[in-house]
Structures are given as C-alpha cells and as structure tokens.
Design a protein around this nucleic acid. Sequence first.
DNA 1: GAGCACTGC
Length: 957
Amino acid sequence: MNRILEFDCSCPTTETRLFCEELFRRIPRNKGLSSSVSGGSSDYQELRKKKKYTLLDAGDEEERSNVGVGNEKKDSGESGNGRRRYRKRRQEEEDEEEETRFQHQTKEEEMKDKMVRRFKDTMKSEIVALREASRARYLKDRVKKKLEEIRDEIEDDDNMFGGIKLSEFETLRQNYKRRSVEVIKSRPEADKDYYEMPEAYDRDGVINQDKRFAAAVQRYKEPGETGGKMNSFRDQEVWEENQIGKATVKFGSKDKKTKSDDYQYVFDNQIVFTKTSVMDGEKYENDLCSDRQQESQSRDKLTLFTKHQDQRRNLPIYHYREELLKAIKDHQILVVVGETGSGKTTQLPQYLHEAGYTEHGKKIACTQPRRVAAMSVAARVSKEMGVKLGHEVGYSIRFEDCTSNKTVLEYMTDGMLLREFLVDPQLSSYSVVMVDEAHERTISTDILFGLLKDLSRSRSDLKLLISSATLDAEKFSDYFDRAPIFKIPGRRFPIDVLNTKAPEPDYLDAAVSTVLQIHVTQQQGDILVFLPGQEEIESAEEILKHRIRGLRSKIAELIICPVYGNLPTDLQVKIFEPTPEGARKVVLATNIAETSLTIDGIKYVVDPGFCKLKSYNPRTGMDSLLVHPISKASAMQRAGRSGRTGPGLCYRLYTSYNYQNDMEENTVPEIQRTNLANVILTLKNLGIHDVVHFDYMDPPPVEVIVQALELLTVLGALDIKGELTLVGRRMAEFPVDPMLSKMIIASEKYRCSEEVITIAAMLDVGNSIFYRPKNKQVLADNAKMNFYTENCGDHIALLKVYNSWKEAAFSTQWCFENFIQVRSMKRARDIRDQLEGLLERVGIMVTSSADDLDAVKKAIISGFLPHSAKLDKFGLYQTFKNRQTVHIHPSSGLAQSLSRCIIYHELVLTTKEYTRQVTEVNPQWLVEIAPHYYSQKDVEALKLKKMARGEGRATQG
DNA sequence: GAGCACTGC
C-alpha cells in the first residue's frame, strides 16, 4: 500500500503516464514515427479555449492540485469513485462491528462477526489491488477523452489544411493520429462508456474478493505480464514532450510563408552544395574488422603487452617495416610521408630501437610541435614496449623532464631540441633524430631543419627522418638534398567534399544554416564547425540557439559546444563528453580543432574557409591578427577531421572555383610572418653569425631580419659588429622574448628582480589571465579594477594579481572569486619558477624593491624602450619613433586615463592599432635609461606640448 | 568601450 502511495506522490501525472503507457502499448512501436509526431498543426492553446476540452482541463487541474497534497486527498475525483463506495461500505461494516460487540448473542450475529473479521483480514492485502483497479478505470476514461481529442484534431486538420500540400513530417503525423484512433477503436469494448463493478458477493452472501478484483485488473494486464502495473517511463517522457511541443510551438502549413512544391524545413537562405570531390579512405575497413576480431579474441587470453603487440601488427606501417629499415640504413636522410593513423610516430622509433640504433648509449629523438603530443605519444609507446614511462621511453618538455639515463626513445617538443643544440651543437647523444609533423612548419621546426641539415654533413652517423603529411613532401625532399621519400598509407574513411554553388556573402550565417540543414536532413553524427575566433563562436552560438528555439519539439536535441583556446579548461572538457542517444553535438571551434584537439564522433565538418592569422609588419613593428582565407592544405586538414571514425562529409562554404584558383597551396610558414628577434638571438647564440644567409627552407623577408638585428642592438644584445655581447649571452639564457629577457637583466640594476620576473611571467602567458564571461561582465570588470590603484598600470596590476594569488596560497577558489583563469596563473607560476632558477644561472640575485614601483617601471623601460608612445594634442597616442597613431586597448586599466607618456608590451592591429598592457612612465626616464635611443629633444617637445595643452584647458575652463 | 587563432623555449 505504501509503495503505491509514495509512487503517486512522486509522480504528479501518474494518470497521464498510465494513459500514455496504455496508448503506446497498443500502438505498434515506430521510433521515427513517434518522434516525428511531436507538435501539431492545431494550436494547443487555442484548443484549450474550446469548450469541449474543458473537461480534460479540469482533470489536468486536479492532477496539478494533487501534487504534494496528502494522500487522502487523492481519493477525491474520478479515481475515487470506487474507493468512496468502498469506504462507505467499510464504514457500514465498522458500525456493524460495534453493534456485535454489545449484542453478541445470537448465532446469526456470531456468523456476522466472523464475516466481518474475515473481511478485515483480507482488507489490508486487497486495498492495494482495489486502488489500482480504481485508477485503471479512471485511465479508461482518459483514454476515451484523449481519443476524442485526437479525433477533433484530425477533423481540425482536415478542415484547415485540406487542400494544402503537407510536408513529410506533417503527413506522417496525421497518419499517426489516424492510426492511433483506429487502434484504440479496434480494442474490445473501448467505446463502452460505463463501468461494471464485478459482483462482489457470492450467492450465499460471502464476499468473494478474488472474484471482485480479478475482473477489474484483467483488462489492464498485458499478456504475459504478471501484474496490472505498468512501468515504462520512456514512453511517458516522449508523450509529455509532444504535449509541451503542442503547447508552445506554432508550426504547420499555415505558418508557411513561401509556397513551394515540396519542403521539409524552410530556411530563409538554404544553401546549395555540389559534391566536388571525394577524399578516398585507404583500405581502412578491412583493417578495422581484423582489428576488432583480434581485439575480441585477445581480450581474455592475452596479456596487455601481447595485445599491444597485436595492435602494432595491425597498423599500416607494419607491412613496410623491413623496407623502411632498409631505406634508413641506405640513406642518411629520409622523408617519411604518412597520414594520420599510419602509426609512424609511435612505430618508427620502436623499429629503430629494435634494429639496434640505440646501442652504444645512443638515443633516438622524436620531436613534436606540441607538449601534449610529446607526452601522450611517449606514454603510448612506453605501454607498447611494456616499460615504465621515463625509463626506456621518456619525454622532455618545458617544465618537465621525464627522462632518465636509461632512456633510449625520447619524445620532445621541437623547441626543446633547439635548446639541446645550445648545450650540445653536435647532438652527440643521439643516433637518430626524427622531426615529426614537419608540415606544420613551426618556427622551431624550421630552425631545426637548417641546423640538422648542416649537422648531417659533419656527422655522417646521424640519421635524419623528416615526417610530414603528403602535400609538401617534395619540398622537404628538395631541401634535404633530394632525400628519398617513403610513403606509408594512412587510415581514414572516405570523405565526401561538398562546395557551395555560389559564394556565400556572410560565412557566419551560412555556417549556422548549414548546421541546421545537416541537423534536420542528415543521419546521426556530430558536427564540427571551424570559425576564426572567440567572437564569431559566441555569436554563432547565439544565432543557433535562437533559431532552434522555435523548432525544439520538431527536431532532435542539438548540443552546442564552443571551444577556443581562451575558454577555461573545465568548459573545454564538455566537447569530449559522449553525445546522448538521439541528440547531436555541434562543436564550434577555432583552429584549435584543426591540429591540437581531436574530437571523437565527428561525421560532418563545416568549413567557412577562414582563420585568424597573426602576421608581423617590420616597418611598423606591429603584429596584426586578422581574418584570412585558409590554405588548401588547411582545408584538407579540416575535411580530414570528419573521417576518423566513419565515412565523413565536409561542407565547404566556398565554391570549388575559389578553392582551385584563389586559395594558397600552403599556409605561409610562421617564420615568414613573425618578429624574428628571438630567433636571431638564438642563432647568434649558436654561433651563426650570418643570419641573413642561414639555410632557411623558406627565407623570411630580409627586412624582418634587419629589424630584429636593430632591436637586438638597441637592447644591447649585439654590438656594433653584430656580435653577441655579454648582455646578449645572458639574455639568450631566458626562454622568453628578447624584450622580456632584457627587462629581467635590467632588474639587476634596479634591484627588483623579484617583481620583474613575476611581471615577465605574467606577460608571457598572454592575454588569458582575466576571464570575462558574457553574462557577468560588470562583475568581472569590477573584480579586475580591484588590482588597479592610483598611478598603477597594467604591468603593476599583473604583479598585484600574482602576489594576491600567492598570498591566497595559490588557491583555485580565489581565482574563481576574482575572475582569474587558474590555468593561466599556474602557467605563470611555472614560468616564474623557471625564470627564478635561470636568474641564479646568470648570476642575478633575487632582490625585491619592496614598494618602489618606479624601480620596476625603469626595468620595464629598459626592456621595452622602443615600445613607447606619447599623447598628442588631439588626445591620441603616437609612438615615439614611428610617429604612428595608436590606441590603448579598452581592456587596459589605463584606457580611460590620459597619460602623457606610456610604455606598452605589444602593439596589435585588430579593428584599430591597439597597445596592450600599458604603463605610464615619466618621459624623463626614457632619456636617462636610453640616451642612445631617446634624445632630450623628444622629451622637451613633450613637455612643451603638455604646457600648451594645460593652458588650453585652463582658458576653456 | 573592444573582443585575442594556435604553438614553443
């Protein structure tokens, strides 16, 4: 009894649920049908107004009022009829009992007493069944009412949309309704509108409860079921969803704006795609099958180690093992081409190890462009070899050296190998160097190319492997003295590439439309959309949400996951969560998803063909971060993201003509579009004097090299002959930009190294310290302004942020409270620790200037002396040297104030020329600190202007 | 009152 009552309480719409269970039980299950039946041509709200539905509504109200009210109250209403009768009877019986207690004389009375006691015994066990029977009867009535409702709907539909052509969904829905009616009608006695209480008493006057309830329960039993209870919740949910859909959404032929012969869903700007090409998969499926077989066979019998060995044998590269080893033996340099999944990164070093290249204490190095890749690959290989990570197989990345003297296979970031060159220019501990993902052309990789090529001439025993994706293999081969190319097939499913028929004027809108198009017309599979930046992702998210709002009950659930670098990690994790059944995930990502993140289950890629690209202008010394069309290689890479777990589809929002004729083959390598000051300093430190004629694979513009040389000279890292000075040598020790390292070196003079390395670390992590969520911008801004005090710029604010965090014991909670990104702070701490260690190495004491912020500012000037600007008479800033108009970025604490002379960390062209991370300084200090760069005249002029402006203001006031 | 792709030492 309790069980039933509790159940009633916890489920406010039990009647509804049971009704619907009954309904669904009787109707043949058809998933597609039941999900498409949602919504209705007639508007539920309007239906509610009609009189014939008031009865139903009253029932609904009653259900609602029953929620949370005591159980007793449940006995009211239609469901209580039987119970009321029963109660009445019970009361009578009780009265009789009272009577017998006093009289108790005749036999007749004794018999009566006996009967009552028997009745009471059976009461407890039967009351449960009685309630159920009563409820079942109520449900029967509901079925009838619902049936009536559906009939009316059909009638309405016929009247309203009789002559209009319906969409497939609407037709389906109507058919579904008609079928529902037929099915219910064909049920025996469905239309009988009275209920017979079975005979309760036998002829001899004895109550026969079995007989009484058996009949009531019988009708609501499913064949084969043991009890009359129904317990499917899923169908209930489906039905409720449909009801909600009816109540909130208007949809149907009447809402149709344009008349077309046939349609499913009408979008204002439906995009027409043409299939232009197919990227073939490479004999994947057979492999996969054998993979699975192998896996299932080996799961129980084999150990983990042998299982790994089995998997190794199934990789495409396995068939080429001997040939590869022979090629490596015969040639000093080999270009290996293998697409994702070929197994080159994990297998090649192992083959070399097995072939004896690690004898005599030599190691094999394999470089990766990213830290995560180096770590995860090393972990994988150590498992395959059955050794502990850090022993025979290790990795070495910044802040983390996971190797030992036993290590023979060393995975490392490319920057790390570059640092290794500084220590040991002969790389004498390595027998093989493999540069993986060479096609990514990071700066470090490009510099490594030149150094390794040179080294290979002096060290004939050193084997060099350059591994890359297909496209530019010939280029690598040409560069490395026509080294042979070894091709390994990849493992990928075929991908259909679709291009638009006409160019799309608004890629954002087109991307959103395409996503919806895919969502309603294509089968299961997640969607990945590439967008240039955070802003575009956020607006795409909003538009998408807005557009599916009106369709929620018509289409499957669409889960929107934004991903970009600055997104806090805990929000990034969302994209890896498996998509729930029946739903679809759409990932809105920046280029982060092109190489850095791999998301499982992506079947559709939407590629608008743009990305943000940073490029450097040596004349203005300014970086620009602007939206550019992507390259063909990049487009291929993006498309490839869809074919990882099954055949994929790539929707390109540009024409195939654009692709063929307007897009570059490859993205301009980083080395040709970056400030090279750091690279030049590194090369100089390696003893390469002629940096202009260094063997670059793609030489950077000479202007950029010259400008870098100039800067290094100004900073005192190079002397007049272009040779590295002591200052330059010390600067090169620090793995940061030359301006930052100069600032650190200068902190020795101003006795504030403690503060300066903190600022350097905070500047180095970039602009991801403060987090500003869209819905809490004011709060976030207020929290940020707490770190700004009088006479305090962005640099000092960063210092305060770090120190406050330190005082809060590096607390994560503190970060949340202050809208600070923990991830960035942890990184800043790592960098700071590293810098602190390096201070010692170059012989600088860690000293604090305490509260003397001027000392800190002077150290900043020493590093960033070309980055100064002054306020002109129009209230705009002009750089001292280039006379270029710049603006203080609104995110800066100084954006509102007018400081007459500022030092900035960087200058980036986005919508305007913005200086970021700004501090006000005394112009006189510029001359003091850098008399070789600033003349007294520059500063005097500023003073005069200031006076003139002051007077102007005075007269105005 | 703007908006910052991704890396690496």
